[in-house]
Design a protein around this nucleic acid. Structure first.
Lengths: 172, 172
DNA sequence: CAAGATTGACTGGTCAATCTTG
DNA sequence: CAAGATTGACCAGTCAATCTTG
């Protein structure tokens, strides 16, 4: 059973996986080479930035698709490097928050334009504005079902006012 | 700088990453639970299937986005389990081919419908036919630039005759 | 006892060095 | 010496067990 005989959804998914891996490799390499920041660290900092610079360990884990143990170790390394600090709230000392430090803020601000440029180079520049628009809409729609919380954070809604319009008719 | 202020290409990319991870988690879990086959093994088998059941180790590595060492170890485990065999051609004994065995064929044939169904459940069913069409087209286009060899193997071209039509105008 | 985070043992990958063949 | 694969040392993650606090 060759690929072109498989259902459309599978082919679309498979191509998405293939693109994801290839773009991510290139963008991660470029990000780390230019800024010294591993992609995972960039993700953590960006994720914290969203919510006022602080987030529970377990929230971090679920947003980044890590196990709790994985999050613990990742944050531990970043704390070592001074990009985040751990903070235990007085009212519930079971929880731990990861908090971005000024050094982490700085690193993120330095890295963001590099990341944006790398994504543009290795991904965005291959596509028309209209294609990016449709893609953002499609992925936003799926994310809204799979993980509404994350979807809200990612927020792929069109810039302009109003709700997302439906997709135009298929090509041909 | 909040997400909705970032360039469209970055938002589209970020949403794609988020969806990729979440769908892959669910599909991999389901595949392994239902068939006992880890996603990486499924990938290897599917990849071999494409080219008459055999492929050089280094080709395998680059298609699966693994290092050479990673491919060596993955294939070693699968050989252990009897899903593939290694074969060294007489004419150039430096190369090694991974060859799918009957057991591997069988595992793949069993797993494929499960994988297709899982992708349908966790991804395809959230989208319209027209959206999947457009998505396959977009990803095929990017893949064609990033990795033409892989693009040919994945083959997201529309079923029907003729070249890919251009995208329809953007939604509003 | 439940919620939350951490830790120990382990797995699956990377990179650089090495071995083998052309 | 170059091409191709493997191996050793290591790294970053997982899972299950544990510790701490409510």
């Amino acid at each position: 059973m060759a690929m072109h005989e498989k259902p459309l959804a599978f082919r679309a998914w498979y191509a998405t996986m293939a693109v994801h891996g290839r773009v991510l490799d290139r963008v991660s390499d470029e990000l780390e080479r230019e800024t010294g920041l591993p992609a995972a660290w960039f993700e953590v900092l960006g994720c914290l930035q969203g919510t006022d610079g602080r987030k529970r360990m377990s929230e971090l884990a679920s947003e980044l698709l890590l196990s709790r143990g994985g999050a613990t170790r990742l944050v531990a390394r970043m704390e070592e490097a001074g990009h985040v600090e751990r903070e235990i709230p007085r009212d519930d000392r079971r929880a731990t928050f990861a908090v971005i430090t000024p050094k982490g803020q700085d690193a993120l601000e330095r890295a963001m334009p590099i990341a944006i440029a790398a994504v543009e180079t290795h991904f965005g520049s291959q596509l028309e504005e209209s294609e990016l628009q449709v893609l953002a809409q499609i992925m936003g729609k799926v994310l809204g079902v799979l993980d509404p919380g994350c979807a809200a954070a990612v927020d792929t809604a069109p810039d302009a006012a109003g709700v997302s319009p439906p997709l135009p008719p298929p090509p041909s």
